[in-house]
Nucleic acid binder design. Structure first.
Length: 179
RNA sequence: CCAGGGGGCCGGGCAGCCGCGGGUGCUUGCAUCCGAGGAAAGUCCGGGCUCCACGAAACGAGGGUGGCGGGUAACGCCCGCCGCGGGCAACCGUAGGGAAAGUGCCGCAGAGAGUAGACCGCCGAUGGCUUCUUCGGAAGAUCAGGCAAGGCUGAAAGGGUGCGGUAAGAGCGCACCGGGGUUCUGGUAACAGCGCCCGCAUGGCAAACCCCACCCGGAGCAAGGCCGAAUAGGGGUGGCGCGCUCUCGCAAGAGGGCCGGGGUGUUUCGCCCCGAGUGUAACAGCUGCGACCGCCCGGGUUGGCUGCUUGAGCCGCGGAGCGAUCCGCGGCCCAGACGAAUGGCUGCCGCCGCGGAUACGGUCCGGUUUCGGAUACCGUCUGCGGAGACAGAACCCGGCUUACAGGCCCCCUGGCAAU
RNA sequence: UGGGGUGUAGCCAAGUGGUAAGGCACCGGUUUUUGGUACCGGCAUUCGCAGGUUCGAUCCCUGCCACCCCAG
């Protein structure tokens, strides 16, 4: 079974990249660059959710961004499918999609946790700058060995950085076959 | 020991490295504390909370509940008891009000299915018929007629069994059982018991319509509240403005040009609309419209904060009660996320299976304070392999239902054996 | 979160208290030289699952399961 450990904060924080500053709610100075139009502090607080996370990453939250990533590069591996797409200077962002088809809530949440662990480890070093990265869970995502998936993710990222991908899937087919 | 019944509980533990969400503290990047479940699930009931409606109402519609008593904030839940059914028993199941308020249904089969009926059958005492006659009557058939015991059909045939009775029969009479009514007794009650009365035609279905009693206003934390930049737009109000000119005409008015504003449209070119009405001698006043200016108000995109976790709370002790539960005292703080926090890696122990070692403990045999022997069945040690369920808080509680590897504890019943 | 609907043969489906229509498909046969057509016959016992009510349940009631749709 999994071990539930108390984290050792003192060492953990020492290993953190120095550039990663933690967002603490009301800090307005850090995010001034994120939203140039917001001069005063009251308004800037409303955009705190756009702050980068400790790894220099941020999370994709809008459905339209997920749909847009479908038109980017697609790299399928046994444990996941990786979508990558440039996002016009919004930094390295990631998102996770696991559909109900894969399993119940326990399985889906577990897949999301393992994917986050993978992304936090891989993206700061191998991630594509100013790209959205989306991992899609599939049937093998729970049982797949973690070390194997780590290598697969790095391989998929390097392929994506070379501009290569698997056959694009295109938009989902609707009834009207208009182009 | 075997078989079975009921209830309760756990549902991995410890540790290391790298990480995640939240609270608190300050020295703002550290410290410290906390961080999923018994079902968090299904969303089937009941509440809290918030807003809306309202007359703290009644009636109706619609829906729900349905033995009695109790518990509770409330319930369709729980506890106790009663009736009925099942089981040798422990115990289990039970939507369990009303069928002489009404309507409806009871297919097929069958004579007959709800105001019973007469196919086979039984009888034919009585009246008639035939034969015989010792003239008293007897026998026979069954025309009239009587009967519903037996057969048959069915889930169900209008109380059952037995005896008497009769021509044959029948609650026709009797006994017991069943049913209905009722006095009394016990019980808060459902109901139970005893006695008495009634020979007792009047089925089933209300999870068919329905009747009766009781309960229910609606919506849901995406409820609701606060904040909210610039630009654009909405409403109110005050100020300001509602034009110049030419032609025709007494005037009202009509037309053209210019100016301003708005709309349309492919830039130009163009097209459309507006630039007031009433009133007065003229102003004023009143009504209306409009660009602009001032002030005020409200809505709102993206979003932030709040609601948001201290609660019908948990633990312990004592008390009341058969129990559900309640009361008192003491202690504790125990998730608050929002594309959504528990993950990645590793070690040891524990669980299951197989194999090996050991006579140390249990077990068995002999002798009997201490001992000797047998045995790998159990323990012990050890190696390898395996299993590790169901399942993830989303405003919060009380229930119900459903899912669940493996394991633990308590009580009870029946049987066998021994004492 | 709230509301609604469906589940009957391989497929589409009717039936709504009395043992389950019909069509397509499939199988067998006849007709035809063969194929098609046509004709005849066959093809549902868990009517999604489990209980209950009833003499009797696809139908009524309760609880589950799966799928679909709508609103925010």
């Amino acid at each position: 079974m999994e071990k539930r450990n108390q984290p050792e904060r003192s060492e953990g924080k020492a290993n953190r990249p120095p550039a990663a500053t933690r967002p603490s709610g009301r800090m307005s100075e850090d995010i001034a660059l994120a939203d140039a139009s917001a001069e005063n502090k009251d308004s800037s607080a409303r955009f705190a959710y756009l702050l980068p996370m400790p790894h220099g990453l941020s999370v994709i939250r809008k459905r339209s961004d997920f749909l847009a990533a479908n038109r980017g590069l697609r790299n399928a591996k046994p444990g996941f499918v990786l979508l990558t797409r440039p996002n016009e200077g919004k930094g390295k962002r990631y998102g996770i999609t696991v559909t109900k088809k894969v399993g119940n809530a326990v399985v889906r949440n577990r897949i999301k946790r393992r994917f986050r662990e993978l992304l936090w480890a891989a993206l700061p070093e191998h991630g594509l700058a100013d790209h959205d990265h989306i991992l899609i869970g599939r049937d093998g995502s729970v049982e797949r060995d973690f070390a194997a998936m780590t290598q697969e993710l790095e391989a998929a990222l390097s392929r994506a950085s070379e501009g290569k991908g698997d056959r694009a899937r295109g938009p989902r087919k609707r009834r009207s076959p208009r182009a």
